[in-house]
């Protein structure tokens, strides 16, 4: 027996795991809307900026 069987089995299992994860995420509807998450991930930064601005205005007063 050679180590190649083990390696082949391992590589296919790893590939199948990723494949399964992809199918699962499609099934859960993660790819139904690809636009909104792209916008949403930028919001947190805006919020922080807003708070900073507010603080600076307050210190002026």
């Amino acid at each position: 027996m050679s180590v190649i069987y083990l390696l082949l089995a391992l590589s296919i299992i790893v590939a199948l795991v990723f494949f399964g994860v992809f199918i699962y995420s499609v099934k859960r509807g993660q790819y139904d809307d690809v636009h909104t998450p792209a916008v949403r991930m930028l919001f947190e930064d805006e919020l922080v900026k807003e708070e900073n601005q507010k603080q600076s205005i307050k210190t002026k007063d």
Binding site: D32, D33, H35, T36, V39, R40
Partner: peptide
Amino acid sequence: IRTAQVNFPK
């Protein structure tokens, strides 16, 4: 209101 999630294209 607990959560609100937007689907922008729709």
